[in-house]
Design a protein around this nucleic acid. Sequence first.
DNA 1: CTGTCGTACTAAAACGTGTTAGCTTGCCAT
DNA 2: ATGGCAAGCTAACACGTTTTAGTACGACAG
Lengths: 348, 348
Amino acid sequence: MKVCSRDVARAAGVSPATVSLVMNGRTHIALSESTRARVRDAAERLGYRPNQVARNLLTGRTRTLGLLLPSLASSFVARIADGVQREAGDRDQHVLLAHTRRDPAFEQRQIEMLLQHQVEGLVIVASEETLPSLESRLDVLEQAGVPCVVIDDHTHVDRVDCVVSDDRQGAEAAVAHLIHAGHRRIAHWGAGDATSSARDRLGGYRTALRRARIPFSASLVLGDSFRSAPAPEVVRQWLARRNPPTALFAANDRHLAECLPVFRDLRIRIPEDLALVGYANYDFAAYLDLTSVDQDPTALGKAATRRLLDRIASPRMKPSRMDLPTRLVVRGSSTVVPIPVPAPCPAP
Amino acid sequence: MKVCSRDVARAAGVSPATVSLVMNGRTHIALSESTRARVRDAAERLGYRPNQVARNLLTGRTRTLGLLLPSLASSFVARIADGVQREAGDRDQHVLLAHTRRDPAFEQRQIEMLLQHQVEGLVIVASEETLPSLESRLDVLEQAGVPCVVIDDHTHVDRVDCVVSDDRQGAEAAVAHLIHAGHRRIAHWGAGDATSSARDRLGGYRTALRRARIPFSASLVLGDSFRSAPAPEVVRQWLARRNPPTALFAANDRHLAECLPVFRDLRIRIPEDLALVGYANYDFAAYLDLTSVDQDPTALGKAATRRLLDRIASPRMKPSRMDLPTRLVVRGSSTVVPIPVPAPCPAP
DNA sequence: CTGTCGTACTAAAACGTGTTAGCTTGCCAT
DNA sequence: ATGGCAAGCTAACACGTTTTAGTACGACAG
């Protein structure tokens, strides 16, 4: 059934060694052109397909990277994976997929699996749930001698390469934009302080305020308390108090999208009564005319993969952190634009 | 550096064969409990990790599935991939990822790669671009003796297992819903006729009309001409003609989302002047209050994976087609709801 | 005839594991 | 003593490649 190099060798009247030399285009050893042709012909005729598994075992190299992510259900993560896959394809590396399911125990088993499969490196997409155990995972990987790159969190830059988007700068640009539009009471709806990106967004928010000499007020910062209650509930109570903010910078477009009905319900006009800026620039942000900070997750995936391959090539380098630029996309939720039909569509 | 079974054997004072027996929990051959303990202990101490590559070569089994998809950038595809990965994880299979990049030539190379890696089966997510060459890919796979399952197209059910969502039923439900709401002139914005799902949606549309004794009118069906021009342009011209439809069933939420500004611009009220039903139920459909047909892509991925594993287990089965049920999610774009919050965007 | 050299090819080892036939040892029955 | 048997373990092969040392052979010079 399955045809191996021995079969080809027999058919071409040569030895398996010769088949190998021909198939791999090795020229440092002399082979007559007629032999080469005979081998190629036999391989073609028999439908010979070299067995990568055998090759990997012998050479000790697999050209395979592990991609460990929380879940592909998140489009942000999926686009990162797309970038990884694209870059890997260009450098012809293969990608073995693994989920953590946001469960540390499951993650551990998956890492074990990837190592047993002899992956040469690991791209890890961080998630809040698996972040606490990341350090011990790094121990395991280090001991196994398998390098890795962490995407979307830089808490452990001292030990491992990190590729993140420049959330500090992104947040700062978002808030500066609101300040420029005349706002002074700007609220921030954060994402807690578990991840470095959440902390950085808060940091960028504070920096922008400081630069404009606007005092920081803790009462204007809403943590990740929305986790215990639905976002609309939280924001409803929050806006009901006296002296509400005139602008809101949210750490995630999704919070804003979920709250739009609440704003309509409360007769809060966007952007006149409340200007909104989100984060991540999901595709629905365009449809909802939400100003947002674009992160380019595909670029994250590509950059991480490049970095990983560089490290595999030269393992001694000092771990580095890479901050990919973000881009503020201004839409109707933060500015009153002249044309009544903003621009979620290709302009005429 | 890398510790192998021989090292463990030496450390435990046994042979590699014994190590293998212990590590794999084989009990059909008697081993004293003390030996088992010694081996386990040594393995633990040395950080022994069995080499899957060697194991795969020897046993000829890899427990690895190939997942071939157009691109992870589409959230629909990504959610299918999520389902595949989840189901594979549960049956402890591994997943080797491959992109087609919507390019038949690249796809061919990727399939070759997957086969060389000795995947035991292939999940193929169909795309319009690679559909024409699918048949010849099936030839290759058949000859290699590697089974596969196609998701999202059933053109080739005669040769291969197909897992699709029941688009005929989904479309019928959508249109029946519009008819039930009193509409008679219902337009259909299709997706061409290249894919079976596009054809099925058109079929469901016609069935619903027939059941309600509404004559089919070709002038109410818009093909995939939007590919040559931006969707808003197309729909603008289309609605400008005399005797426009009172309802629109689109093969894709995205078309509707992009056209909402056009409707606003033309002073067409949703749903009073034009009722809308989309397809796929993207997350933004909820935010935009769009009625849509939900497809559950995760279930598609899971079902396909189950089917693939069944076929690997018993290759002689006749190829089958599996239609996963769809679910109509009624929102404000198709019915006047009691609460006056139909506005898709933060309207001024 | 012998030695040298280049060309064309191959034999054999290696990668790390799983399987199985067979070996050793001790024990018990004859 | 001898045979039989079970328990406990191992030797050796196999998987399909790649690599390298080495062989065979002809040509050609001395």
